[in-house]
């Protein structure tokens, strides 16, 4: 059997694949955070909770309403994103004129509420969601075994990430968004409905998190606390990459997943912490972050 630095090739590529999938989730979530931060200037602490709600909506939708995976993939981001828009319209907007730290505190409170409520109904142990029939099984690629579902997650996440990049960088709506990020007061003076744009942006960022939640449902145990632990890692990813650039968020997310996967192969004890260590390194060498714009 072929070995790479003393590790069997199949185990090596398998872990790399797992890392890449984690990275896809980091990318999706940090992308949503970056989009929201760009226009609203708040860090959405409820992002992990929205990801969790996406996974739970998928699970409960199947259990109680018989909604299958493919419908959920479209429906859940819309529903959770709509829920996010309501939150923005009726809660976040009321503090938009204040110091942005209040936005962080408010969304943190919301995250506690969502998480605590679901813990009461479902406990903290994870629930299982079956892999959709079409995506069961896997291929033997010779150098590794690829479960179809994992390949699908990676593909879907990449397509959505690049689609988001395309919308923001190449369409008129994206141009509005970027202009609003630069100077929303001037945008409003030009006649653009900025409050509506803000609501839609928050909804879109939340929908990205919910989409990640749907993808995660068959992959990880669905539990109320699944979002918060992931979110802290995503925060570290955001600090590493900086929130200034869309492509930067995607690349950093994937790269951090890969580094985590590699660490799992060679030094499993540090797999949980390696991203935080990278963050420390980046803070020391390049405090503004790899793709950061702030001075």
């Amino acid at each position: 059997m072929m070995m790479i630095f003393g590790v069997p090739l199949a185990a090596f590529t398998g872990q790399l694949m797992l890392g890449l999938i984690n990275g896809a989730f980091y990318a999706l979530l940090s992308l949503g955070l970056a989009v929201i931060f760009g226009l609203l200037k708040i860090v959405n602490f409820a992002h992990g909770a929205m990801y969790m709600l996406g996974a739970f909506a998928t699970l409960l939708g199947m259990q109680y309403l018989g909604i299958n995976y493919w419908v959920s993939l479209i429906l859940v981001p819309l529903v959770v994103g709509g829920f996010g828009m309501l939150i923005e319209r009726f809660i976040l907007r009321r503090i938009s004129h204040l110091d942005h730290l209040y936005g962080l505190l408010l969304t943190f409170g919301l995250a506690l509420i969502f998480e605590g409520t679901l813990v009461n109904f479902f406990g903290v142990s994870g629930l299982r969601y079956p892999t959709p029939e079409l995506l069961q099984g896997g291929y033997n690629l010779g150098f590794m075994f690829l479960p179809i579902y994992r390949g699908w997650v990676l593909l879907a996440a990449l397509v959505v990430c690049l689609g988001t990049w395309f919308i923001i960088e190449r369409t008129r709506l994206g141009a509005y968004l970027r202009a609003g990020t630069e100077n929303s007061a001037l945008m409003q003076a030009f006649g653009v409905n900025v409050p509506l744009l803000i609501t839609l942006t928050y909804g879109f960022g939340v929908a990205l998190a919910a989409f990640a939640g749907v993808l995660a449902a068959p992959l990880y145990p669905v539990s109320p606390t699944m979002g918060s632990s992931l979110l802290i890692v995503v925060f570290a990813v955001v600090v590493i990459g900086g929130m200034g650039s869309i492509l930067g968020s995607i690349i950093t997310g994937l790269a951090m997943g890969l580094i985590e996967g590699l660490t799992k192969v060679y030094y499993p004890e540090a797999a949980n912490t390696v991203i935080f260590l990278v963050m420390i390194l980046v803070l020391m060498l390049r405090p503004a972050g790899l793709f950061g714009k702030e001075a």
Partner: peptide, 19 residues
Amino acid sequence: NWVSVILGLIFVVCVLSFR
């Protein structure tokens, strides 16, 4: 069992109207 929900609610109320 609702401690964390209630703390979250206090958080939200504090930020919205009691800064």
